[in-house]
């Protein structure tokens, strides 16, 4: 568990605020399960402070189960204090760039430079 504290936080998975009631949670969970079953595109992704993530019916069911236990819910609430939107870049750190001044990671470099399987 590392990035997952943000990425798989049940509140972000269900798209609700930590202060919501138990009934609201259940309603939102059931609504998302229905939307996923119908294959609605808007239900397949959700926002977290560190980026977008894939939503699946298993993840939604797991999130609902986690939040039914008040002790576990309290902890998840603490990790979900930030709104579900991507954090802005800090001053002095260019998007996607390296702090060394380099152009940042280049995932396709091995194949582009002839040292990996061609794509």
């Amino acid at each position: 568990m590392s990035r997952e504290r943000f990425l798989e936080n049940p509140f972000y998975v269900l798209g609700v605020r930590p202060s919501c009631t138990r009934a609201e949670l259940e309603r939102e969970g059931q609504k998302l399960l229905g939307m996923l079953e119908l294959g609605m595109p808007s239900s397949k992704k959700y926002q977290t402070p560190i980026g977008e993530a894939e939503r699946s019916p298993e993840l939604v069911r797991q999130a609902m189960a986690e939040l039914r236990d008040p002790h576990r819910r309290l902890l998840h609430e603490l990790w979900a204090q930030l709104p579900a939107e991507i954090l802005p870049e800090e001053p002095g750190a260019a998007a996607g760039g390296s702090e060394d001044g380099g152009p940042g990671p280049w995932p396709d470099a091995p194949s582009a430079l002839g040292f990996g399987a061609k794509k």
Partner: peptide
């Protein structure tokens, strides 16, 4: 902002970057 939110924000910023680019 509250201290907990500030700490979460800082940690989130950390996870958004490649490890070797963090000072």
């Amino acid at each position: 902002q509250p201290r907990l939110a500030a700490a979460l924000r800082a940690l989130g910023q950390l996870w958004r970057r490649e490890a070797h680019l963090v000072r």
